[in-house]
Design a protein around this nucleic acid. Structure first.
Length: 881
RNA sequence: GGGUCGUUAGCUCAGCAGGUUUAGAGCACUACCUUCACACGGUAGGGGUCAACGGUUCGAAUCCGCUACGACCCACCA
């Protein structure tokens, strides 16, 4: 049986994923076991896998696989999000390519296209997750626009409306002129931009004709001057006091507007004179309300000037800005222009500059839900990992504003409100119920006369129900609803793994919904991953083209290698500077594991052979080491320190198991091995595979299947995760000293150019436990270790481990001068060190104040260093003699 | 403008209820080695005044203050 020297993942990964699916290993149904549940942050239905997903889902898979092995009934629910604005934008673009404008087709036709698009591209991302090894319960896959999921959303709306938490009103909202929709505050991203500050002259009006006298106004948005309804100055500003109450003319259109005063205006900024444009600025809007000013809206939904602007009608706002500036210059009304840096809001989805716009929208009151959502986190009923996000979370929850939940889109759950001809409206789960309610207002109303609201709900208004609705879509609004065993069993879920950027969008709102509908928070731990960045620290994005193709990476290095690469650099909450070399490290590790298996596979067992002393000692040591490592791993998992847990297992396998254990027990080439050691080695390998499985599911399954006979359907996924045992730190420390001795002898050989084959004798003086001699003998090629004093005049080298001196007789010519210099340097260093320790010890305050333990430690340092100095001095003397 | 977090080897990070650390790990690097599991390897090794300054303390990478730089969050001065 020939096993290749290199591990090749592709066929193996495919084989085991199919096997797991075939045997329904990922599927979970409620039973008497303790549940462990986790819901996927649903990716956009038409999205493709990027590095962020890779990281996020690898972490989830590690958690869920470990829980499963620990005997819990683990359930990881997958699914996708309809992502209303993002998907709608994609469909609109797609239709445009085919020469179809959204405005030319009906809502129904558009939705048909959208569903076609979804059927074609939806779920690709879930297929990609399978390549990663994700152990999702695919039978439970949900989509936020599945009929029953949508019903839940509608029910929720109706329920909250009747509870008084949802209302409709005209408000200044963040308008996305590219998406032609309102967006919530959270979907606006502020960026610093370099703009111009224009200083524009408004001449005073003399009965509609311009006087010579003028006021200068500084603005970044000259294209909105046509929407001005007043100029405003500070009441205390002496420059303008006499002008208040007079009128000025808007440049270019010569419309007369008043000069008013308001304390809002800052006297220091610009000219101290502010133009008031209520329709296009939130502050101006509030000032306008205060002074009962009219609202002149000159922009349409796409950000083009309307006829209300009188000039440049139909021109885009930014083009208009340039043109107006030009016209003002030509008219001699532009006093000056200066560079100006300011923050501007951009749409998260379309990257269009957000336009403050007055419009009728639906809102949800957030004050009360936020209070409860904050309390869960403050009282640690929900743990944020890392904890630093608590501050950010608190700040947001304490300053939350009402949530604009309506979107002027078609792709999504349509708002369940119906309007009567009179303009009154009713909120109901469907048209039939709506008609009933409508007739209570106007008994004469007919079915065809009530019209449903054209808008849909914000995507987050469906995803905030996710941890509830995936288990039971029939949420609230149904007081008579039946108890649902899935919800009762799996809710609340255990962990949520997501990105900090959606802590407010999604996590906070899920907490609110969970509380509202289940009376309990939806999860216990929120693990916030970092943003995946490239080596230069730039966010990985499609537009930058700096994101490696995850599937390509898996094809190159195997899913296990990629998972390991992701995990190694993923400490919670910090951004991840991703470097493909880490994936290479993962791939190399797979190969190491593979070859350790190859080695043990090749061993012949001799039932009659006695276990060697060395092997017995080694097995005993590794038992201790395993026990220690298992409890360390448990501890790291409790703290969600996944990358450290993986590193620990990595070193356990590579260093402790391969470099030490296997080398110690390895029989000489062609020789058989005793049964006891063989059995122990297999057990260790088995346990190591179990520890590794959550991180690297495929290779561990492959090897686990091979190291012992398995029945069809059996899988490492349900093998019992190793439990921590007690271990003796003393014997572990003893073997650490053994390793040190071996390393010292190896170093000696290298420096003195003594071949590995040449056996040496070792003299030891001190408390070193000589019962470990066989282990040293094997790896350092020592023929014997003796406690005798070496005969006088014997040449050789000495070293020190712990508090024992070692001496190796050597008859090799040495470069005495170089050797002495090296020893002198070392001596120098030690003398300086001892001096500093002694200084500390001679400090009365230190002796008085420091704990006895610390003082004793310093004494020990002194003793050890002095002893080392002694050894070196003897060596030097020997050389000089 | 306000706030949060960070700055430890070339890189990514751990250590931070002050003293068992004369600051650790992995990767990268250097030298030697194709020796019978693995060159996607072995053995050995080099590398940091813990961002700067000041303070508290017998003692500071660890606590406090300030500065610089970086990241993020929040915010209606046009």
């Amino acid at each position: 049986m020939e096993i290749p020297a290199r591990y090749s993942p592709d066929s193996i990964e495919e084989k085991w994923y199919a096997y797991w699916l075939k045997h329904h290993c990922f599927h979970s149904v409620p039973d008497e076991r303790e549940p462990y549940s986790l819901v996927i942050p649903p990716p956009n239905v038409t999205g493709v896998l990027h590095m962020g997903h890779m990281l996020n889902n690898t972490i989830q898979d590690v958690l869920v696989r470990r829980a499963r092995m620990m005997g819990k009934n683990a359930c990881w629910v997958p699914g996708t999000d309809h992502a209303s604005i993002a998907t709608e934008a994609k469909v609109v673009a797609k239709l445009k390519e085919r020469g179809i404008e959204k405005s030319q087709i009906s809502r129904e036709e558009f939705l048909q296209h959208a569903w076609e698009w979804r059927d074609k591209h939806g779920g690709i991302i879930l297929e990609q997750l399978k390549k990663l090894g994700a152990s999702c319960d695919w039978a439970r896959t949900r989509f936020t626009m599945d009929p029953e999921m949508s019903n839940a959303v509608v029910d929720t709306f109706v329920y909250l409306y009747h509870k008084g938490l949802i209302y409709r009103g005209v408000r200044m909202v963040n308008w996305d002129p590219a998406g032609c929709t309102a967006v919530s505050d959270e979907e606006v991203i502020h960026k610093e931009v370099h703009e111009q500050l224009y200083y524009i002259r408004y001449h005073l009006s003399d009965g509609g004709k311009p006087c010579d006298q003028y006021l200068t106004v500084a603005t970044t948005r000259p294209e909105t001057i046509m929407a001005d309804v007043a100029l405003c100055v500070h009441p205390q500003d002496p420059r303008y006091r006499s002008l208040v109450g007079k009128k000025v003319l808007i440049p270019l259109i010569h419309k007369e507007i008043p000069i008013i005063q308001d304390e809002y205006v800052s006297m220091e900024f610009g000219t101290g004179c502010l133009k008031i444009t209520p329709a296009h600025d939130i502050n101006d809007y509030t000032i306008g309300l205060r002074h009962h000013l009219p609202v002149v809206d000159i922009l349409d939904e796409r950000g083009h000037l309307t006829s209300a602007a009188q000039i440049l009608v139909g021109v885009d706002r930014f083009a208009a800005r340039k043109k107006i500036a030009l016209m003002l210059r030509e008219a001699g009304l532009m006093e000056k222009e200066e560079a100006y840096t300011t923050q501007i809001g951009f749409s998260e989805r379309t990257n269009a500059v957000i336009e403050p716009r007055l419009s009728m929208q639906w809102f949800m009151k957030m004050a009360d839900p936020a209070k409860q959502a904050l309390e869960y986190v403050e009282t640690n009923q929900i743990r944020l990992i890392p904890e630093k996000f608590k501050n950010t979370y608190r700040h947001w929850m304490e300053n939350v504003r009402d949530w604009c939940i309506s979107r002027q889109l078609w792709w999504g759950q349509r708002i369940p409100a119906w309007y009567l001809p009179s303009g009154a409206f009713v909120v109901a789960v469907d048209a039939t119920q709506a008609l009933e309610l409508a007739r209570k207002i106007d008994p004469s109303v007919q079915a065809g006369e009530i019209i449903q609201d054209e808008d849909v709900l914000d995507t987050w208004f469906s995803s905030w129900l996710w941890p509830v609705s995936v288990f039971d879509p029939a949420i609230p609004g149904h007081p008579e609803r039946k108890p649902n065993p899935d919800l009762a069993y799996y809710y609340p879920t255990n962990d949520l793994v997501t990105a900090p950027e959606i802590l407010f969008f999604w996590v906070a709102r899920m907490i609110m919904a969970g509380h509202e509908f289940c009376g309990k928070p939806p999860f216990k731990n929120v693990y916030l991953t970092g943003i995946v960045r490239d080596k230069q620290g730039r966010k990985m994005s499609k537009s930058l083209g700096n994101s490696p193709d995850p599937l390509e990476m898996i094809a190159q290095n195997g899913a296990d290698g990629v998972r390991m690469g992701m995990l190694l650099c993923s400490n919670a909450g910090n951004d991840i500077l991703f470097d493909e070399s880490q994936v290479e490290q993962g791939r190399n590790f797979c190969n190491k594991i593979w070859n350790a298996y190859r080695l043990t596979r090749g061993w012949q067992v001799d039932e009659k052979a006695e276990q060697s002393c060395c092997s017995a000692l080694t097995v005993r040591w590794f038992q201790q080491r395993m026990a220690q490592a298992i409890s360390q791993v448990d501890d790291l998992f409790d703290k969600f320190r996944l990358s450290e847990a993986l590193m620990l297992v990595y070193k356990l396998f590579w260093d402790d198991f391969c470099s030490w254990y296997l080398e110690w027990v390895k029989p000489p080439a062609g020789m058989p091995m005793d049964a006891a050691t063989y059995l122990a080695t297999n057990t260790f390998l088995n346990d190591l595979l179990l520890l590794l499985h959550p991180f690297m599911p495929f290779i561990t399954e492959e090897l686990w299947q091979n190291i012992a006979p398995r029945r069809e359907g059996e899988t490492i996924m349900f093998a019992h995760y190793p439990k921590p045992n007690l271990f003796e730190t003393d014997s572990l420390a003893a073997v650490e000293e053994v390793k040190e001795v071996i390393v010292a002898i190896r170093t000696l050989r290298q420096h003195k150019k003594i071949g590995q084959r040449m056996t040496l004798t070792l003299y030891v003086h001190g408390p070193f436990d000589v019962s470990y001699t066989p282990m040293i003998a094997k790896l350092a090629h020592i023929s014997e270790i003796t406690a005798e004093t070496p005969p006088n005049g014997l040449s050789g080298s000495s070293f020190r481990v712990g508090t024992s001196d070692f001496f190796v007789p050597l008859e090799v010519a040495t470069n005495v001068e170089a050797e002495c210099q090296k020893l002198k340097d070392e001596l120098d260093y030690l003398v300086r060190f001892v001096t500093s320790v002694q200084q500390k010890l001679s400090n009365a305050a230190f002796i008085q104040n420091a704990p006895a333990k610390v003082v004793e430690l310093e004494h020990k340092k002194e003793r050890d260093a002095l002893a080392k100095i002694g050894v070196i001095q003897t060596q030097l003397k020997n050389y000089e003699a």
